[in-house]
Design a protein around this nucleic acid. Structure first.
Length: 302
RNA sequence: GGUGCCAUAGCUCAGUUGGUAGAGCAACGGACUGAAAAUCCGUGUGUCCGUGGUUCAACUCCACGUGGCACCA
């Protein structure tokens, strides 16, 4: 068994992951890696509920605000950056905490994803323009010709999945499916996964309240300052896109805020769907600190 | 007080020339190997305000009641 442990804290947004992560970081005298795909952008602070200055002072956090919304970023970049960082941290600590709500980012670190060349911005733009021109049926046809194997397993009504495969085929001249090994990468550390959840109604109350708090803290101003960049992927994000619509004159501010709450609830449900599938995850309530520590000790000494 | 209009899903509303009802949003379930807070798929959850009446049959027509809105006093 490995003596280095990555402790994962997963769960839906607003469930209380940050508080537990800080508690555990203090207990183990270690640091925290953020696995939230939006908190990495330094321009997005209020709307992504990054930990407060006080919280950040208690435990060192990595990958919060370390990128700009103008940077291209994805799960593979996150995997590579995190593995590099972990090499350094495990030289110093026996345990490291990773917390966040982006299931794909967490899996990229725990299991790895296949190495595929990064697609150039030019090809991405080109294929997107193509999609607008020939539509879903058009890109489906192209994928069936270029990569029949993937065409049969892909969600054919999801343009993003089809475009990704076409981008890779265009970029490399090889079918996307030829890069998919499905192999789990071996890591030089072990993982322990904690899932946090609370009754649905409590979660929704916390989400609704947190959106009100974000608005009180100036989310409207933050979004206003970013409206010129709304075309960037980073800003295709709950809490911002609804306010951009409001700036366009679509609906009232109250309606926009209600939409942010509803879309955040839906996001939380999608997170739960993702995490429920992971059988390595052990579920707790966020206030069960003692039980969680007991479980961690047990797993880490095994 | 009078007149008119309205009352259908959690919300906003459509609809049935009388045969127990549907759309958007919400809600719920699922997928997901480089945009993942993204993207995509599936599910209608209902005393059709109440009580009587007409009818083989009423959510639909009639009467009364209740609640809401508007206008007139």
């Amino acid at each position: 068994m490995n003596s280095k442990h990555l402790i994962i804290i997963a769960g839906p947004t607003a469930v209380g992951k940050t508080d537990l992560a800080i508690h555990l970081a203090r207990h183990f005298g270690t640091e925290i890696i953020n696995a939230d795909s939006r908190q990495i952008y330094r321009e997005m602070v209020i709307g992504t509920a990054v930990p407060s200055a006080d919280q950040l002072a208690v435990a060192k956090h990595h990958f919060i605000g370390h990128k700009s919304i103008h940077d291209y970023y994805n799960a593979s970049f996150f995997e590579n950056e995190t593995i590099t960082l972990l090499d350094r941290l495990f030289a110093q600590f026996d345990a490291v905490i990773m917390t966040g709500g982006s299931g794909m980012y967490i899996d990229a670190v725990c299991r790895g994803i296949d190495d595929i060349p990064t697609v150039s911005q030019q090809i991405r733009n080109q294929l997107h323009a193509e999609y607008l021109k020939i539509g879903l049926a058009g890109i489906q046809t192209r994928l069936r010709e270029l990569d029949p194997a993937y065409f049969h397993i892909v969600d054919q009504s999801n343009p993003k999945r089809i475009l990704k495969a076409l981008e890779i085929a265009e970029m490399t001249g090889k079918p996307y499916s030829s890069f998919l090994s499905g192999k789990v990468k071996q890591r030089n550390f072990s993982t322990v996964k904690i899932g946090l959840n609370i009754p649905r109604q409590d979660l929704y109350n916390r989400i609704n309240n947190r959106v009100d708090v974000m608005m009180a803290h100036g989310l409207l101003q933050e979004a206003d300052g970013l409206r010129n960049f709304r075309h960037l992927n980073a800003l295709n994000t709950v809490g911002y896109k609804e306010l951009f619509r409001f700036f366009d004159g679509i609906g009232s501010l109250e309606e926009a805020v209600d939409q942010i709450k509803a879309h955040t609830r839906q996001y939380a449900r999608r997170q739960l769907t993702w995490f429920r599938r992971d059988k390595e995850l052990r579920w707790f309530q966020p206030d069960e600190n003692e039980l969680i520590l007991e479980y961690l000790q047990c797993k880490m000494n095994a």
